[in-house]
Amino acid sequence: MAPMPKSLSEASLQLEQQLCFALYSTSLAMTKLYKPQLQQIGLTYPQYLAMLALWEHDGLTVSALGEQLHLDSGTLTPLLKRLESADLVSRQRDDEDERRVMVRLTPAGKRLKSRAMRIPATMLDAAQCAPTEAQTLTRQIQMLRNRLSTA
């Protein structure tokens, strides 16, 4: 393999040329925009993600929820404890397999969904992003995440 010309090598180390930095700084900007929206409904960003997963599929096991959120149990357990303390979810051992813990929405957790319904549109407006553009970006980032996960 031929050595890279010096200019290409130096350019590859410029901060603004880094895909990882673009993703990182965009994530920071996105969560900063979410913060006031989520404060209005009493959730942190990671809690919001867990609630999104449960609003979509209530009654997940802790391990299935962790897989969906890409979180390990050491991160997920304290998050679920806080949601349980807020009376938004309940955790119970599975009757069929006591090794599994099921996470279910409480009535308050189910009601919170209606208050969260405005958040996605608010975020699209803030990003000045059409729904189709957001869907395309989301698919591209998911494909990148999946490739990186298998690398």
Rank of each mutant, 00 (worst) to 15 (best):
I141W: 04
A29F: 01
R139P: 06
R118Q: 10
L112H: 04
R147S: 15
I119T: 00
Q68N: 12
D58M: 14
L52R: 00
R111A: 04
P78N: 10
S85F: 11
V101A: 00
E10K: 03
D72M: 07
P46K: 04
L8N: 14
K110C: 04
I41L: 08
Y34I: 04
T61C: 04
L105P: 08
S12N: 15
R99A: 11
Y48H: 05
L13F: 15
L23V: 07
L23Q: 06
L54A: 01
L79C: 07
S25P: 06
T77C: 10
D95R: 04
K113A: 11
L71P: 06
L43V: 07
T106F: 00
L76E: 10
R147C: 15
L71F: 08
S114N: 13
M30I: 00
R115I: 04
K81R: 11
L38S: 01
P78Q: 12
A116T: 02
Q47W: 03
S27P: 00
M30N: 02
Y34V: 01
R145Y: 14
T136L: 14
P107C: 02
C129K: 03
M143H: 12
Q37T: 05
R111W: 06
G66A: 04
D94K: 12
Q47I: 06
L33F: 02
R115F: 09
N146F: 09
R145K: 15
T26N: 06
K113G: 01
I41H: 03
H57M: 14
Q68C: 00
Y34M: 10
T75F: 09
A50F: 01
Q47S: 07
T75S: 09
G59E: 07
Q140M: 12
I119G: 08
W55K: 08
L112W: 00
S85V: 08
D87L: 01
R100F: 10
G109R: 04
R118I: 11
M30W: 05
G66N: 05
L80T: 05
L38N: 04
L76C: 04
A11F: 01
A116C: 13
S12H: 13
L49D: 05
Q47N: 03
